[in-house]
């Protein structure tokens, strides 16, 4: 009896880490390679022209920033304060590396050698329509690559809204600030403690 128990314990210990079948089941995970397909990718590209049901991009203004081929001057949907906050959040992620937090085109990547990004604070860009900015975010401009793969459509519009806010912030007089907020400008919020160290 005792001998049997000993054998069972020994087998349990020995067999514990033998097989990994449950760790690695035959299903594909994201980005996994595949021996089955010729290009080695488990993730299959959709054939050109595929449209998921309900996802046909009928709204020209929303998806291209144009109406009848002309760049639009109005946002395709109302932009709320919360939307503007999200626009700022997305801007900080995707745009600050080159355009800088202020939108002056002096981001860190520019300081490291990329061709200088445009400053939003010039008359040419202050006068541009919102559709123009959406088009540039989507398709790129000059040395800037398009960001269609990285930023969803709605977020691109919200970034444009925040760029407009940045432009206003750098091109305003004290008289334009609401009276109850003027005091806040004399006491700017404390800067974030963490500044990236040089490498």
């Amino acid at each position: 009896m005792r001998r049997n128990l000993f054998v069972v314990v020994l087998l349990a210990l020995g067999a514990g880490a033998c097989r990994q079948d449950m760790h690695d089941t035959p299903r594909y995970e994201a980005y996994e390679s595949s021996a089955f397909f010729a290009d080695g990718k488990a993730a299959r590209p959709t054939p050109t022209g595929t449209v998921a049901r309900g996802w046909l991009r009928e709204d020209e203004t929303l998806y291209t920033g144009r109406a009848n081929g002309e760049l639009v001057a109005e946002f395709p949907f109302p932009v709320s304060q919360a939307d503007l906050q999200r626009g700022r959040d997305r801007y900080d992620i995707y745009c600050t590396p080159c355009h800088g937090a202020l939108g002056d085109g002096q981001g860190m990547v520019v300081q490291r050698g990329l061709r200088r990004a445009a400053s939003y604070h010039q008359d040419r860009l202050r006068d541009e329509k919102v559709g123009y900015f959406y088009d540039v975010v989507t398709n790129g401009f000059g040395a800037m690559q398009g960001y269609a793969e990285q930023i969803p459509v709605r977020d691109r519009w919200l970034i444009v809204a925040y760029v407009r806010a940045l432009q206003l912030s750098q091109h305003a007089t004290m008289a334009e600030v609401p009276a109850d907020r003027q005091g806040a400008l004399d006491n700017p919020p404390p800067k974030k403690a963490e500044t990236p160290a040089a490498h």
Partner: peptide
Amino acid sequence: HQHHVGGIGIDCRYCHTAVEVSTS
């Protein structure tokens, strides 16, 4: 990552775009 995140200060989500909406 030390260079791109620590040195340049690029946000994680600039590259890992799906992290807020996906399993991966």
